[in-house]
Amino acid sequence: MRLDRTELWLLASGVVLALGVFVLPNWLTFLLTIAFAKGLVVQGVVVQMRAGLVSFGQGLYYCIGGYTVGMGGQWLGVHDAFVLLALSMVAAAVVAMVLGLLLTRYREIFFAMLTLAFSMILYGVLAKSQSLGSTDGFNVHGITALGWTPGSSGKMFVYVLTCGIAAVAAVFLHRLSKSSVGYVCEAIRENEVRVEYLGASPRWTLYSTYVLAAAVSALGGGLTGMATGHVDPEMAYWTTSGEFVFIALLGGIGHVAAPFVAASLFSTVRTYAIQFVPHSWQMILGFVLLGIIIFLPKGLWSLFKRTRKAEARV
């Protein structure tokens, strides 16, 4: 397998960030863990955006990922991080295979609303199940890795794991976007009828994209559950899904690293807004995001592209 320049950059960034665990203060590594885990869910949104579909219910798979990790530990006695993450991907993929059959028949606002509806159904079911702690959720603890118990360095382990998974997922998604399926997705966004005339099946392309997006998002949910040590139905609530769409727009769909950058920026702005203006942090966050959308309509990533073009001109 030969890696191109972008892929080398992605892997190198992953390694550097993972090594940061020795240098960065703990609060920052935790912030980044959550940001990258959310970034993975946003990747799921972005993959679908490339094909012209906006999912307003990606929280469904985020929640499935989180709950699989939580329930696996609580009821199945599985505590291995890798097994749990694999399980959450499988669980999400199975659900997506069923829902995808229906959802891929719809486009635009109909697709958005239906995805939202399904995530809210899960929210409703979880909020009514008292054995799962209803809206309070339940704790996730005792995560191990291949027989090793990280103990007090558990959060550091989850951070390194998140960096690794995020880097590998980014490389994979980058490959995908440069593969024929990736290009078909873009073609579907531009003109679906024409794609059909060319002999490709938009429906099955979208179906496989949908299932893949679900699996990637579930990884994000699983990692969040391990990092925070708690899962609750809020993960499937529509505002959570809205946040993912927002981060996706913030980063733009120009580059596979954009969701991670955007998620980190979002978390950083939010935490400092909460610290400095505790009574109106939402307003600060809102203005920053509004500013980015007005001045960088193609997302944060257009900053990098613009400078590169400027360099090329010189």
């Binding site: 703990n26 935790f30 959720g137 925070t228 708690h230 809020e234 978390s267």
Partner: peptide
């Protein structure tokens, strides 16, 4: 803002 955010802010 929910439990995930509160855990993050508690650590901060």
């Amino acid at each position: 803002g929910g439990a995930t955010k509160q855990v993050e802010e508690f650590r901060n």
